[in-house]
Amino acid sequence: CHSECLGNCSQPDDPTKCVACRNFYLDGRCVETCPPPYYHFQDWRCVNFSFCQDLHHKCKNSRRQGCHQYVIHNNKCIPECPSGYTMNSSNLLCTPCLGPCPKVCHLLEGEKTIDSVTSAQELRGCTVINGSLIINIRGGNNLAAELEANLGLIEEISGYLKIRRSYALVSLSFFRKLRLIRGETLEIGNYSFYALDNQNLRQLWDWSKHNLTITQGKLFFHYNPKLCLSEIHKMEEVSGTKGRQERNDIALKTNGDQASCENELLKFSYIRTSFDKILLRWEPYWPPDFRDLLGFMLFYKEAPYQNVTEFDGQDACGSNSWTVVDIDPPLRSNDPKSQNHPGWLMRGLKPWTQYAIFVKTLVTFSDERRTYGAKSDIIYVQTDATNPSVPLDPISVSNSSSQIILKWKPPSDPNGNITHYLVFWERQAEDSELFELDYCLKGLKLPSRTWSPPFESEDSQKHNQSEYEDSAGECCSCPKTDSQILKELEESSFRKTFEDYLHNVVFVPRKT
């Protein structure tokens, strides 16, 4: 048989008469490798580009789960590009990614509803959504962080984005990388972005840091009482949809009607710091009717980097990364020049730590249904340095008659930039024990000054392991946590139920 035959053949030295091919099969003959313009397919066939392209389009058009959109890589027609490569849609070739590779997620039936953290986790790592997304989240724990972890990498949506009755959302900033909504599939009414009845939605994105392009379709905003109209108009300008909307697409009466839409800028007039305090004062603000001013709200939190936005980490279910302080308005003076500047002394802060701070007014709604208010920009203030805590785990070892090696770990709280350490030492008198000992005694162990690591005695271990207080009263049991108490109650309830079950099964009433 021919060298490319495997198993047997019907005619000697003829690659077209093989029972099976050793390498690849091409047009009725066995070959060692697939010549151009053919590609290896499933490690035994040679196919042309049209064959591989037909497989790709067949799966793409069917949208069946589990099928493969075949691509070409290293002269092979394979189910998908290997790690580190992405497909070129024009020629199906796998090309190296520039940075992290995109991950295209194809949605069944063309859309997916995100109504819980669990459903959001199914899209973790996706960068391109081939379909439409509907966000409908009523509640949950730590929602802002969970949504950002699972949806934060999405850069492109081919269909539309719909935010509907998501009472738990305060902001859409968890879509931190969303840059493009194509609108290839539109919501009824030709809408590519749809926001309806979101009672706590206050911000779409921080438009000073976020760009969003909507290729096709219109915007729809109705019944978002805490979303200011200025935020919607800003989205029109940034996304390129200005002029597409009709009169009733953006409701003037049901958007922002319960919001404090600040239209003035508060400026800080005085800032002073110490290692654990920050004193702030800002310019006074009074609405047209000074009785509408209820006070100020001061927001602050630790910020290692200057990239904080107002609604980071917030949701309507209680999660809030900001510390909020309510401040009463100052006494009002008739003389504008003698107006008191409101302020606040922030206490209990960490030394040498940068804080993000902003302040906003708290006002009631005027009778004319106009909203007044003022808010400052987010500023960054760093507390002063102070003395560091003591170095940890000092170790001293003498390696000769004239040297001592000293080692330690950095302090747990540096409280500033540590530039150097101060080492103090003092000579001590020799131990009298060394002169009084009889060095001729056998088995004498000389006193040693070398360091030995501390260890816990058996008594201390027994005390720590004991669940009861000892007789001397030195140790006591740790208080039980809520989960331990709940577990004990469940076990007790189970024992009672099981005992009742045994009584009912074992003891049967005697027939009379």
Rank of each mutant, 00 (worst) to 15 (best):
H106Y: 12
K112V: 06
K112H: 10
T113W: 14
I114W: 01
D115V: 01
S119Y: 11
A120C: 12
Q121E: 04
E122Y: 09
E122L: 13
C126E: 00
V128Y: 08
I135E: 00
G139Y: 03
G140L: 14
L147A: 04
E148V: 04
E148I: 13
L153G: 10
E155F: 09
S158P: 00
Y160D: 01
L161M: 07
L161W: 00
I163R: 00
R165F: 15
S166C: 11
Y167T: 15
L169W: 01
S171L: 01
L172N: 01
L172D: 00
L172T: 12
S173M: 09
F174H: 05
F175A: 03
K177G: 06
R179A: 09
L180R: 09
L180I: 15
E184S: 14
E184V: 13
E187A: 04
I188L: 10
I188D: 05
G189Q: 02
S192L: 00
A195Q: 02
L196I: 13
N198K: 00
Q199T: 11
N200S: 08
N200P: 07
Q203L: 05
L204M: 14
W207D: 05
W207N: 03
N211W: 14
N211V: 11
N211M: 12
N211S: 13
L212P: 03
I214M: 12
I214T: 09
I214F: 11
T215I: 13
T215S: 13
Q216E: 02
L219W: 08
F220D: 02
F221L: 13
Y223S: 10
Y223D: 06
N224R: 00
N224W: 00
C228V: 04
L229A: 10
H233N: 06
K234Q: 10
E237D: 15
S239A: 11
S239N: 02
G240T: 03
K242Y: 07
K242M: 12
R244H: 15
R244T: 07
N248F: 15
D249K: 15
L252T: 11
K253A: 09
D257V: 12
D257G: 02
D257K: 13
N263I: 09
L266C: 02
L266Y: 01
S274Q: 07
I278R: 00
L280F: 01
E283W: 05
Y285W: 05
P288N: 11
D289M: 03
R291P: 08
R291E: 06
L294T: 07
F296L: 02
F296A: 05
M297W: 14
L298K: 00
K301A: 13
A303N: 05
Y305V: 15
Y305L: 13
Q306T: 13
D312G: 10
D315W: 05
G318P: 11
N320V: 04
S321L: 10
W322G: 02
T323F: 08
T323R: 04
V324S: 11
V324G: 04
P330W: 03
L331N: 14
S333V: 07
S333L: 06
S333G: 06
N334T: 14
K337F: 12
K337A: 12
S338A: 10
P342N: 06
G343L: 08
L345S: 12
M346T: 03
R347S: 07
L349I: 05
P351I: 06
W352V: 05
T353Q: 06
I357T: 13
F358V: 05
T361N: 04
V363T: 08
F365L: 09
T371K: 06
T371E: 09
Y372K: 10
G373L: 03
A374S: 06
S376F: 00
S376L: 00
D377M: 09
D377L: 02
Q382E: 09
T383S: 03
A385H: 10
P388Y: 03
V390M: 08
D393F: 15
V397G: 13
V397L: 06
S398F: 09
S398Q: 12
N399C: 03
N399V: 07
S400E: 15
Q403P: 00
Q403F: 05
I404M: 13
I405W: 07
K407P: 00
P411L: 02
